[in-house]
């Protein structure tokens, strides 16, 4: 089994799906000749031609909006937005058109499409190359939202997203693109959308995270293990719809929930998970659920590493839960 980086896994997933289904096509800025600014689509235009790997004008509204029409007409478009921070000119297309097409037509039309985008901080990108806008998408009925953290998941979930009958926002933490390699099967495999992964089993505390923050979450878990604790670590992978069952059963077991995400705190996915666990497990918890998140500021450049949840901040919050 070959080892792959996250970006290679994305490329492999796109390649396999394009080979399998000729309705699958890619469109976006620089995705063709250049193979994408992060090289996610490298080599695919040479293989499938300029019509199926289409360089578009510099317009997120055109990219996402055209994907809606392509999908409604029967194609399976995968749109690339160069950075999640630049999705906003295309938001009317994503929210008013893609997300609501099935609903507003009473099920007559639908937009089975994927919008891929690099997300998150840690690359010294300042506030317009570092944001984590997944809560905006999750707040919009009709969209599914995936945030991956491993090469294996990236391949299995992207393939599933392309085959899904609903519009899927597929977010790729850019700081993880080349951070790790792991074994990824070349055989056909799909991962279920909406299913979390338990990265480590334990009984003392439940750490829930996803995307880029999985790195610090797993490091914090290692330190806890070194200190003689047994944390359970859950990677949500899909944030809409998120895997309530897995989170609840873990929190019920440990009695302590800590949710970690680098997205801003207020009205976040972390808040939603914490609120749901509070509502459903109030009398089984040993401490109130806590959140460790990005701050409610624009994403700063100089404080790149401090803005995101640090291992120290995660450990401090865990200590509060354990000492409660």
């Amino acid at each position: 089994m070959p080892t792959m980086t996250l970006i290679q896994a994305i490329n492999a997933a796109l390649d396999e799906e394009m080979k399998r289904d000729e309705r699958v096509m890619l469109l976006g800025e620089d995705v063709g000749r250049r193979g994408g600014v992060f090289l996610a689509t490298e080599g695919l235009q040479q293989k499938y031609g300029p019509d199926r790997v289409m360089d578009t004008p510099l317009s997120e509204a055109a990219i996402i909006g055209a994907a809606v029409g392509l999908a409604a007409h029967g194609m399976r478009p995968v749109a690339e937005i160069q950075f999640a921070d630049y999705v906003f000119p295309g938001i009317d297309q994503l929210f008013s058109q893609a997300a609501k097409l099935r609903y507003r037509s009473g099920g007559q039309f639908s937009a089975p499409m994927v919008v891929r985008m690099p997300t998150g901080g840690g690359v010294k990108g300042g506030h317009h190359h570092s944001q984590s806008p997944e809560a905006h998408f999750a707040h919009t009925a009709g969209l599914k939202v995936i945030v991956v953290s491993t090469p294996y998941d990236a391949k299995g979930l992207l393939k599933a997203a392309i085959r899904d009958d609903d519009p899927v926002v597929f977010m790729e933490p850019k700081r993880l693109y080349r951070a790790v390699k792991e074994e990824v099967p070349t055989d056909e495999f799909l991962l279920p959308i909406g299913k979390a992964a338990v990265r480590r089993q334990g009984r003392d505390i439940t750490l829930v995270s996803y995307g880029g923050s999985m790195v610090e979450t797993l490091k914090a878990a290692e330190e806890m293990v070194a200190a003689g604790l047994e944390p359970e670590v859950i990677d949500l992978r899909t944030v809409m719809p998120w895997d309530k069952e897995t989170v609840l059963s873990s929190a019920a077991k440990t009695g302590r929930l800590l949710v970690i995400s680098e997205a801003p705190r207020t009205a976040s996915i972390a808040s939603e998970v914490a609120a749901t666990v509070s509502e459903e497990l109030f009398d089984q918890l040993l401490a109130p659920p806590l959140r460790v998140t990005g701050f409610d500021t624009p994403y700063p450049l100089a404080q790149d590493k401090l803005y995101m949840p640090t291992v120290t901040r995660i450990l401090n919050a865990a200590k509060r839960l354990l000492d409660y």
Binding site: G65, A66, V68, G69, Q93, S96, Q97
Partner: peptide
């Protein structure tokens, strides 16, 4: 199906036309 958001159906029309062409 008509969408209230003004001009939001123009890029989807372009997308459908692209599919027709491809």
């Amino acid at each position: 199906t008509v969408c209230s958001a003004i001009a939001s159906h123009i890029p989807p029309a372009t997308g459908a036309a692209l599919s027709m062409k491809l």
